[in-house]
Design a binder for these strands. Sequence first.
DNA 1: GCCGTTTTCGGCCCGACTGTTTTCAGTCG
Length: 577
Amino acid sequence: MNREEMADVLEKIALLLELKGENPFKVRAYRQGAETVLAMEGDVVELAKNDELKGIKGIGDALRDKLGELAKTGGLEFYENLKKEFPESVFELFEIQGLGPKKIKSLYDELGVDSTAKLKAACEEGKVAVLPGFGEKTQKKILDAMAANEKFADRFRLGSVTALVEGMLETLRLHPEVSRVAVAGSYRRARETVGDLDFLVATKEGALVCEDFTTLPQVESVIACGETKASVRLQNGMHCDLRAVKNSEFPFALQYFTGSKEHNVALRSLALKKGWSLNEYGLNPVDPGETPPYVEEEKDIYRLLGLQYIEPELRENRGEIEAAAENKLPRLVELMNLRGTFHNHTTASDGKDTLEAMVEEAMELGLQYLGISDHSKSSWYAGGLDEERLLKQVEEIRDLEKMLGGFRIFAGSEVDILKDGDLDFSDEILAQLDFCVASVHNVFNLDEDTMTRRICRAMENEHITMLGHSTGRLLLKREAYPLDHARIIDCAAATRTVIELNCSPMRMDMDWRWWKRARDKGVLCSINPDAHSRDQLHNLGTGVRVARKGWLRREDVLNTRTAPEIEAFLKMPKAKR
DNA sequence: GCCGTTTTCGGCCCGACTGTTTTCAGTCG
């Protein structure tokens, strides 16, 4: 039993109590308890075992007893009894957008629906539309939401699989029969979501390495295992391939399996013009009389085709091949260029870690400064700060900074952009901050023109340093709201507003496809983790990869600047930045 | 179920939107 499992049990209890129509405040207490378990300091499992949870806010007598039982026995009788009342599959129903506990209960009581499969059948037979409180539109919305879930079912967010991939690479690297290892595919190209993973090894013992690959702890089941390829399904449900090639084939296989398909098609046609035939095994002269060139690394392939080396992130056939032919590829930003970051939360609003803990982690990462921007009052559900609490936080920040020997904390706010483009705080309040992120958190259903004008209005404010998560999308969960990106970028350029690359794994927003345009208009990017806990600051690494995918250079990214440079930047009138 | 310079009951900070209704319930941030 670990922290996550304990929190999961409380969360599931909350769902089941909701289904039973229990007192909503009791439900909330369990949900809050789950949050507390995840966020609290110390070894919560050990504390629960020793009955030492007294005094923790959000955990009262009842939850303390239940957590104790969980920690000591690994089970919970209360939960087991509750689970007996519903089949396990009801939890699926909570994943459907637009369905809450009341509707699920109604579906369960009236139609016996207790799984997505049964729900789909009931919708298709028209049984859902005639239930009280439901209707044709609701039935259609449920079907659409289920279709969307299916569409996303086999995809994963880039930032959520980084640790898994790094772990597997490390293990493969240690294999005695393996000389080279890489991950290819859309993961290597830093797409914001990936469907499957492609690992590549150079070895003389393909069958052995494939066999050993299928026994990795991350593997759930084996689909196929041969001499050059193994296919498995991982514990997290991901499809994953390993390809074993000879060392001499490795660069070609790496290039080929990295893709994208469009990039490779363009590259092969370029090769043909030069009298070569390129495939995943080699680069061969079309004229059989000539000898194939010596290739040791992927770089050599590009060089032989008369191209600059094209970084994997750029390989989408969006102009990179032409630029490489003219020696005009940008030198892309790197993680080591980052000096600090903005847009982070603390326990003052919905963050899990205190100001001190966040700062400590930023220092640990080798940064020179950290921007704090908790939610504003309209985001009350996230514990948004009102004017009084905000100004108090600014004071706390100034006080803490004095004790840090040079590390800078920039005091800011993630201020809500209200429906009409007004901001949640007055200019007088905003003027007292070092910086300000403006974000949309509600009323997502405006038409494109209205939404664009709303956001532009916020950017026109002198005190708004940067625009937060511009499209509002939640990857694999919620589509972006309609937005005229070209106008947003023009407005950012005109008002000298920075645009954020929010590198929370859920967001990666603004989308990488727009960054080159923004860069060319002189718009600065700020790579921000939107961290709600200290460990989320580590998402900066993935953020940099996505910035690279957007063709961004060091000079295009605000937070590659040093603390004194940032200070000067923020003090400058916006128009002169 | 939690919490309390209103200590053992009575609150638990909202507002927009949708689709169902005919004045409102359910869902979502």
